[in-house]
């Protein structure tokens, strides 16, 4: 706990009171007494918005893509397997963001973070096939042997940016 406290010492200066709304829960020091609950919530949101504006650290997000969840950050390379229509050079916005966070706070979606808050952009950089996978079966003493070869389609994605917009807790616009 001591280490944890030390890590968050700086944060505790930033935050007047402890707590969170849909953001990180600050659970370290004894809560300061002079801040009432509703104020604290607002303060936390305001502080998070300020932190976003300052862009103090790199963001990461967990996105849902082709039935899998990926933890991505700026400049990541993803290899997606299976049939997927986008072509080389396409710029894509990954909308299904389940969680986004920076060094100082996390945004947790239920199940998704509100649309427009977190923007994850990616570029398709290559499409191709995987290495050949050999599917080999053999039964002993039964004269049974099968061999097949398969290659899966692979799409390589470069994550360009993971950006958190400066409007936590604004009323969500229904984009979808």
């Amino acid at each position: 706990m001591a280490m944890f406290r030390a890590g968050l010492q700086r944060l505790s200066n930033v935050f007047n009171g402890q707590g969170g709304i849909l953001s990180r829960l600050i659970t370290q020091n004894a809560p300061t007494t002079n801040v009432t609950a509703p104020n604290t919530t607002k303060d936390v949101i305001a502080t998070c918005n300020k932190l976003i504006e300052e862009r103090t650290s790199r963001n990461f997000a967990i996105v849902h893509l082709l039935g899998k969840q990926w933890r991505v950050t700026d400049g990541d390379l993803l290899v997606v397997e299976g049939y997927w229509p986008p072509n080389i050079g396409d710029k894509i916005k990954l909308d299904k963001v389940l969680l986004a966070a920076t060094k100082d706070f996390s945004l947790i979606g239920r199940p998704l973070v509100q649309p427009g808050l977190v923007t994850v952009t990616a570029t398709v950089i290559s499409k191709g096939l995987s290495h050949t996978r050999t599917h080999f079966k053999k039964k002993r003493r039964k004269q049974f042997m099968r061999i097949n070869f398969q290659r899966a389609q692979q799409t390589m994605l470069r994550i360009n940016t993971v950006e958190i917009a400066n409007k936590i807790n604004e009323a969500p616009k229904n984009v979808f």
Binding site: F4, R24, L25, Q69, R71, L98, L99, I108, G109
Partner: peptide
Amino acid sequence: IMLDRKSLSDLAAWEPKTFHC
């Protein structure tokens, strides 16, 4: 909160603060 095993363990290993939350 629909995080799967993979991302939860990812957070557990590399993002302990988020996992704490």
